[in-house]
């Protein structure tokens, strides 16, 4: 519903920017043939209120469809009403296939050494068992990164997702220093395939195109979530590690099995925990501990 309303706005904006949209003006060839200074040709065009009028062909300008994407910023800042997105990571299922990392890097225009999500190799000090721990941004409910940003480039939305707007980011890296989870990284060099993404309009929810000299971070795939699809990493996992969903619905869906379960039950039954709870950051990412034989 949200999506439809935005697409409605965009269509209206598009038509407004187009001004008087010629019936035949959809063909660029036709416009170029009419845009000469010396042309005295009159053209019949259709106005927004469906009236057919005649204008001088020289006054016609090609509307840039790309301008129309300004709604991306607005909807990216606002978020989705009535939702509160959460992720649950089942550590006992992770086999270090790193498919989540690859899917994330290809979606967010990241180089292989840049991570929005990273799979770490862990070892439990007491039991001695080793396991793999995927670690995305924790999308804290009390985000220290947002507190320290001097230019409001990184922000939290009403649906709980913490995003970064690289058009505002000045590259001070205060947020990198403030994040206790090391979830952010800096674009020290030009991003991957910079030429290919040169003319792409910036989408704050996808954080693409990436920009040199700005900070980048996991976005909980806000663009996919808006469409009702699971995040890139969650759907790429072959081992059923990730659950993703809406805490307001108390439902989370497994990315591999597509099975939907109750969030509260899943967390309670598996003694879920969050990372560094003592810091009071209140993460939106929960971990289900590794199951050992003696536990």
């Amino acid at each position: 519903m949200e999506k439809n309303s935005h697409s409605g706005v965009s269509r209206r904006k598009f038509l407004q920017k187009l001004g008087v949209a010629g019936i035949g003006a959809t063909s660029p060839l036709f416009i170029s043939s009419c845009s000469g200074e010396s042309s005295r040709k009159k053209m019949k065009v259709l106005t927004l209120d469906n009236k057919l009028i005649e204008v001088d062909a020289t006054e016609l300008k090609i509307a840039k469809a790309s301008n129309d994407k300004s709604y991306l910023q607005q909807e990216g800042r606002e978020g989705i009403k009535g939702k509160k997105f959460v992720m649950v990571i089942d550590l006992s299922k992770c086999r270090n296939e790193r498919k989540c990392m690859k899917a994330c890097q290809s979606a967010h225009q990241l180089k292989p050494e840049q991570h929005h999500i990273n799979v770490l190799e862990m070892e439990d000090e007491i039991s001695g068992i080793s396991y793999f721990m995927p670690k995305p941004c924790q999308h804290c409910n009390n985000p220290p990164c947002v507190s320290v940003c001097p230019v409001d480039a990184t922000f939290k939305r009403q649906d709980g997702i913490v995003l970064i707007d690289n058009e505002r980011c000045i590259g001070c890296r205060f947020c990198i220093a403030a994040c206790p989870y090391s979830a952010r990284s800096f674009n020290w060099t030009d991003p991957r395939d910079a030429d290919k993404y040169k003319d792409v309009v910036y989408n704050v929810e996808l954080n693409v195109p990436q920009k040199k000299g700005t900070v980048t971070k996991c976005a909980f795939s806000a663009d996919r979530v808006r469409e009702g699809k699971l995040p890139y990493c969650v759907s790429a996992c072959p081992n059923g590690v990730y659950y993703f969903g809406d805490a307001n619905e108390d439902l989370v869906t497994n990315g591999t099995t597509k099975e939907t379960v109750r969030l509260s039950k899943l967390l309670f039954d598996n003694s879920a925990y969050v990372l560094m709870p003592e810091l009071g950051t209140k993460p939106s990412v929960y971990y289900l501990p590794v199951r050992t034989n003696n536990s």
Partner: peptide, 10 residues
């Protein structure tokens, strides 16, 4: 089922 944002809960 109950309809959820990402899937249906049985």
């Amino acid at each position: 089922f109950v309809k959820g944002h990402f899937g249906n809960y049985l």
